[in-house]
Nucleic acid binder design. Structure first.
Lengths: 214, 214
DNA sequence: CCTCAGTGATTGTTCAACAATCTCGAGGTA
DNA sequence: TACCTCGAGATTGTTGAACAATCACTGAGG
């Protein structure tokens, strides 16, 4: 069964999932020789996958030293929110009435978030909530922004990995996602924009607090 | 003298310059074996460089078929301008008075553009004009956006490669860059924003015309 | 004119080897 | 003790060769 995905792509996919899923924590070294044994792939293939993750900003490459899961600086987290504010608010500001497809995608993300919260899978709550925000950005209809924002989201997960109490960290956001969604369906873009702005303020505050408290 | 750059990085750098400089035209295949001979590097190293260019959107990767210099679709060019409008206008809108460093960087870009036009190096005119716009985006102070926009600019060059008459294509923009710069130094952000908006409209129109004409 | 097996070209992946560089500790010196 | 040097081990950087997988094309046969 010939996969359409290159082996290096598959390995990059798994490593990405491991980082985002918190199984590989920031600062952990990713040693080529170990990964060769773990994935039964050649070193060259492993290297390709590692380089890919590096370009996505999930890992840090130090020449002759190796790769480690990236540890974000405070300024980098703030930068992530500069990007979020710019793109998400712009997307809402210029949005017209939601198409059926757009509405459905958002609703699905919110439903998935709700289910995840019911089974108290806080990691999944974060994942699906961020999917909702990805759909917000998708309102611009720009593949370039979509791809860029996907990477921003992935890096944001790196910051969340330090969350000591994930429940309190993730819990109150679902209602606010839903509120924004409702405002958008009613075409109240101005109100949606304000709600999103406050949302991002609080989210950034909480994320940055992880650096002072941990 | 040990280089701080990996060999694959250097090769990627050269290939990038060749693509942006128009020595490698869209559609041209990049065959690993040929590059091995041209750069006296091993195939693995070449592959690493090619993958990097692929992730930057300068080349197109078709599995088991190979790499070729990317040929942009009409919709992709439009997307590039969606991104430009969003980022450049946002940068201007939220900009305060220019710092000395910011002002100097913009002035340098404009000076370089002027010099390039005097010696009728239209490729360099485009390069430095786009550097000015990169500095516009830099007003946001976001490294993430800076890096993203650098890739957008590189892809934009791919569209310009098809320009049959580069002089008329590049000539009238310098004055408009300068006008925007002047408005910014006077802190007339509203006027600068409008000038930039018209600039991007015309630039997009001209770029898209390259798809219907040649 | 169409079909399809074969062939050559190109990429996908692996393996083994060696060079370059970093890390860290042992041992010597003041 | 404190500091420096040097060397061993670990890890990455790069190479070269090999073989499998896939694609593009050609030519024989219907």
């Amino acid at each position: 069964m010939p996969l359409t995905l290159s082996l290096a792509d598959q390995i990059a996919l798994e490593l990405r999932a491991d980082i985002i899923g918190g199984r590989l924590l920031p600062g952990m070294p990713l040693i080529e020789a170990d990964l060769v044994k773990a994935y039964t792939a050649s070193r060259n293939t492993i290297r390709e996958a590692l380089h890919r993750l590096g370009q996505e900003g999930l890992t840090r490459y130090v020449r002759n030293k190796g790769v480690m899961v990236r540890r974000l600086e405070r300024a980098e987290v703030r930068d992530l929110f500069v990007v979020r504010r710019t793109l998400e608010l712009q997307a809402i500001a210029q949005s017209g009435p939601l198409t059926d497809a757009q509405s459905t995608h958002m609703q699905n993300a919110i439903d998935a978030t709700t289910l995840a919260r019911e089974r108290e899978d806080w990691r999944a709550v974060a994942t699906h909530s961020l999917m909702f925000h990805q759909q917000i950005v998708a309102l611009m209809g720009s593949p370039l922004f979509d791809e860029f924002f996907a990477q921003v989201i992935a890096q944001l997960r790196l910051a969340f990995c330090a969350a000591p109490d994930e429940q309190r960290f993730q819990s109150p956001w679902l209602e606010r996602d839903h509120e924004i969604y409702t405002l958008l369906t009613r075409n109240q873009t101005q109100a949606a924009s304000e709600a999103m702005s406050l949302y991002l303020d609080d989210s950034e505050r909480l994320s940055l607090a992880l650096f002072d408290h941990p």
